[in-house]
């Protein structure tokens, strides 16, 4: 986040703690509301400006790399994989990823079963492992259709599965989040855990694509 700087010809001493990234347009109503909420909470001492900065950094710092490390470890360490499938929350905690107040269920893809995750009611998503969810995950089309016609939806992501592969769609809740453990691609036997991390994309951990093989 860059510091907001002014270059508009007059001095002023009021703080601008909450400028939007894009300064070219006036703030919309809900941006104003969010900004007002933040300032009021700080003025009232409910939160501090430092806490808010740290929280925004925290939101920013989460990325699919966390999930990819979990997947690569599961691919290379059978005992870890067993623990991950048994209790996802505890197993990701081993890697320093804390998922407070949510239960993580890890579902494993095999040559017979392919898993896909969705939250039809809102946008529940393992953010600690994958970062902020993509727009399509939160949008009507995906949430409506993937539970009814998953094959057609996967095709829109360029993913075509053999007819004999069963597709299981898991609907997340506020308290239960899913992570797909993709199949380790063929031909990656010689790769290190670090190299494997690079193959694991966000979308293959949602189940809409497959991991790269190189």
């Amino acid at each position: 986040m860059s510091e907001h700087t002014h270059d508009h010809g007059h001095d002023h001493d009021h703080p601008h703690p909450n400028q939007p990234d894009i300064d070219s347009e006036p703030m919309g109503y809900y941006q104003l509301m969010g900004s007002a909420l933040g300032e009021l909470l700080i003025e009232k001492g409910v939160i501090t400006a430092d806490e808010l900065r740290a929280a925004i950094e925290n939101v920013d710092s989460r990325s699919p790399e966390g999930g990819a490390k979990v997947v690569a470890k599961a691919w290379t360490d059978p005992e870890y994989k067993a623990r991950l499938l048994e209790n996802g929350t505890a197993a990701v905690d081993e890697l320093g990823i804390d998922m407070p107040a949510t239960h993580l269920v890890v579902v494993e893809n095999t040559d017979k079963v392919h898993n896909v995750i969705v939250c039809t009611l809102c946008s529940c998503y393992p953010r600690m492992l994958l970062g902020l969810p993509p727009d399509w995950y939160k949008a009507h089309a995906y949430r409506s259709r993937v539970v009814r016609e998953p094959r057609a939806v996967l095709k829109e992501f360029g993913t075509e599965l053999a007819d004999d592969v069963e597709i299981r769609v898991h609907d997340s809740t506020a308290d239960m989040r899913y992570l797909v453990l993709p199949r380790r691609p063929d031909g990656t036997e010689g790769m290190s855990e670090e190299e494997l991390v690079e193959l694991v994309s966000r979308d293959c951990m949602i189940g809409v694509t497959l991991p790269r093989s190189s």
């Binding site: 909450n18 703030m27 925004i56 399509w136 009507h140 409506s144 259709r145 939806v153």
Partner: peptide, 24 residues
Amino acid sequence: LGGLPAGSVDLSEHEHGFWEKRID
């Protein structure tokens, strides 16, 4: 929304703006 008819999935993504991360 589960099971309702809908159009194709729009795969475009956007960088989250500061105001979005702030409310988060």
